[in-house]
């Protein structure tokens, strides 16, 4: 019930379903792009200037989420030299919900920048809004979780996600299923505890707290250290805002962040398409048309932003 309300709400169809209206969240909602998130949702502020690339967070995630053993030990830093197809750095996979990458930034004092990466837990998640079977849910605590039992493995969310996060497990050829960071919802967040990766980090790179407080904290930290940080909190506004936000001392685009995404949630660009899809499990041709459309929209939007800049 609640899930469907939210879905409708996100599509801009209603000013919030009963469940949301009751908490007052939807009071100002006019449609996509104006949802400011659950008022008490939690988030994580990642300060890239503090990360030393030790990969403890990766090890912690592996343990907490019961993921398969890694190909290389978690204290092996040779992974930073791995290059994927098309010169890409490591990405999240079905076996690793978070990865740390190294960026050599010319002229930066203090060596390379390390960046931990995982699902950003968007305020208006494109994975959620693009999912035909309602496998996803944004919880009031801030996590974007999914129900693997419902997932049909169509990969639409993978295409929709602006950060290329969802991965697929192909352990069963007939039933591939989405795999991604769930902000440790089941084991920790639900109980008010911070994610395992946050707690494990020796450098306390990540601060766990209410998203609204973290935004303040982020800006305070920028202000208290004049000249140190780029005056921007990545994720405060990007794609409608994300629960995980980042501080950096080098321009974000130099350390793997897409700064061309704009501040509108991806939903704004797919919702007319979603309107086209009647209910759950439409015929496959329609699904693939949509799939394609979605990919094109995302690319078109990026070009648009690029041309602007």
């Amino acid at each position: 019930m609640k899930k469907i309300d939210r879905r409708i709400f996100l599509k801009g169809g209603l000013a919030g379903g009963a469940a949301l209206a009751a908490t007052g969240t939807a009071a100002t909602a006019k449609g996509a792009g104006t949802f400011n998130g659950y008022p008490n949702s939690m988030g994580v502020l990642v300060d890239l200037t503090k990360c030393v690339g030790c990969r403890t967070c990766e090890a912690a995630c592996n343990k907490e989420q019961g993921l398969p053993a890694p190909d290389k030990p978690f204290n092996d830093t040779s992974v930073f030299d791995e290059v994927r197809e098309g010169g890409q750095k490591r990405r999240t996979t079905e076996k690793a919900y978070t990865v740390v990458n190294r960026y050599d930034v010319e002229g930066r004092e203090g060596g390379p920048v390390y960046r931990k990466f995982q699902c950003n837990h968007c305020q208006e998640p494109a994975c959620l809004t693009s999912c035909f079977v309602n496998a996803y849910k944004k919880t009031p605590e801030g996590a974007v979780i999914y129900n693997p039992k419902v997932c049909v493995g169509c990969r639409t969310c993978m295409v929709a996600c602006p950060f290329y996060v969802p991965a697929y497990a192909y352990s069963s050829a007939t039933n591939p299923v989405v795999k991604k960071c769930i902000m440790c919802y089941d084991t920790r967040l639900k109980f008010g505890r911070p994610p395992a990766c946050v707690e494990a980090c020796p450098q306390e790179v990540m601060t766990f707290g209410k998203r609204t407080d973290l935004i303040k904290l982020g800006h305070e930290r920028i202000k208290a250290n004049p000249g140190k940080y780029v005056d921007h909190l990545y994720g405060e506004t990007e794609v409608g805002g994300t629960s995980w936000m980042y501080l950096s001392d080098v321009p974000f685009e130099k350390v793997g962040f897409d700064t061309t995404l704009g501040n509108q949630p991806i939903i704004s660009y797919v919702k007319d398409f979603l309107g086209m899809v009647p209910v759950v499990l439409t015929v496959w041709p329609a699904l693939f048309t949509g799939f394609h459309l979605l990919a094109n929209r995302k690319e078109a939007k990026k070009k648009e932003e690029e041309n602007k800049g």
Partner: peptide, 10 residues
């Protein structure tokens, strides 16, 4: 064991 290294290396 935690880092999957040493005698726990893959």
């Amino acid at each position: 064991a935690f880092y999957h290294t040493g005698k726990y290396a893959p």
